[in-house]
């Protein structure tokens, strides 16, 4: 179950009879479980990340190859509503998914559309969690950038899908809201076994929250695996236009400056601190 790509190609151009089209995605093979995944998709500007996730809830159809979502093969005539109910997507630009005249109506649209009970009650509940109850009666078109993103995220949360896909969800959020959102996603992942997929350029987010990392480059998947293995290979980061997260940057600098025995592959402030303790703690402390 979940989402399965097998040799999928995609192009924004209509297939032409003889001339080849530009393939935005090519040779995609990917399996995503419907339970418990926390995946970060990364890769350079224009590498195809947003395109890939739009295929995951069948907004875009393969040019060739096979795409299955919850056991259903995605073709032109596939009925999509049941799939969209189970796979929720927040767009990179929240403006593209917001159209109702009040924030409340907008958040309630998803649950209403999918026939869930008490859509407005659900909307109020998620607005409370995201701290935007004071915006419920406002027109979404008069919000600040960060406020609008929160509304868009609420819209997906309210529909309670099994797989949540968020395209650059932390862009435009203040530091406090950003960590609140990420902690919420972590909780949904740990306690409710939701599969979470985020696209991000923020290596600190990848480092602290993701288990699995998928790297795209020029429309192809060039890495799919756990994050520690990726961050172990400095040359790969360079090749993929990525960076070290802040924790690793700090530890690397310490290691070089003090010639200390440090494993720089740490992914939280606490783990970084523990590594410093190990390297700099007095031996005869006991």
């Amino acid at each position: 179950m979940g989402i399965n790509f097998s040799e999928v190609n995609f192009s924004y151009q209509k297939p032409k009879r003889r001339r080849a089209v530009v393939q935005t995605l090519h040779g995609i093979n990917l399996r995503i479980d419907d339970k418990g995944e926390f995946i970060a998709i990364v890769g350079h500007t224009g590498s195809g990340k947003s395109t890939l996730v739009q295929m995951m809830n069948a907004l875009l159809l393969p040019l060739s190859g096979r795409l299955e979502i919850f056991g259903t093969e995605i073709k032109k005539k596939t009925v999509l509503k049941p799939i969209r109910k189970r796979v929720g997507l927040v767009f990179q630009f929240p403006e593209y998914q917001i159209f109702e005249e009040t924030v409340l109506k907008d958040i309630a649209f998803g649950p209403k559309n999918f026939g869930l009970p008490d859509p407005e009650g659900r909307a109020r509940e998620v607005a409370e969690i995201m701290g935007i109850t004071d915006l419920l009666e406002r027109s979404p078109f008069t919000l600040s950038g960060g406020q609008l993103r929160k509304v868009a995220i609420c819209g997906i949360l309210a529909s309670n899908p099994e797989i949540l896909i968020l395209d650059e969800p932390t862009v435009g959020l203040d530091p406090f809201t950003k960590s609140e959102l990420l902690e919420l996603l972590k909780k949904l992942n740990r306690e409710y076994e939701k599969s979470i997929i985020i696209i991000t350029h923020d290596m600190d987010v990848v480092s602290e929250y993701a288990q699995r990392v998928i790297v795209l480059k020029e429309g192809g998947i060039v890495y799919d695996g756990d994050k520690k293995t990726l961050f172990k290979k400095e040359h790969l980061l360079e090749e993929y236009d990525l960076d070290y997260p802040e924790t690793m940057r700090i530890l690397k600098a310490l290691k070089e400056r003090f010639q200390a025995d440090i494993d720089i592959n740490q992914h939280s402030i606490e783990a970084t601190y523990q590594e410093i303790l190990k390297a700099f703690g007095e031996e005869d402390e006991h």
Binding site: D174, P175, F176, T177, D204, E246, T247, I250, F258, I269, T272, Y273, I276, L277, F280, G281, E282, E285
Partner: peptide, 22 residues
């Protein structure tokens, strides 16, 4: 709703730790 930098968080933690070399 802002924060200090990661490096500064570490400095605070190190400051509060006894018996560190360097």
């Amino acid at each position: 709703r802002l924060d200090i930098l990661d490096c500064m968080k570490l400095i605070e933690m190190i400051e509060a730790t006894q018996g560190l070399k360097n």
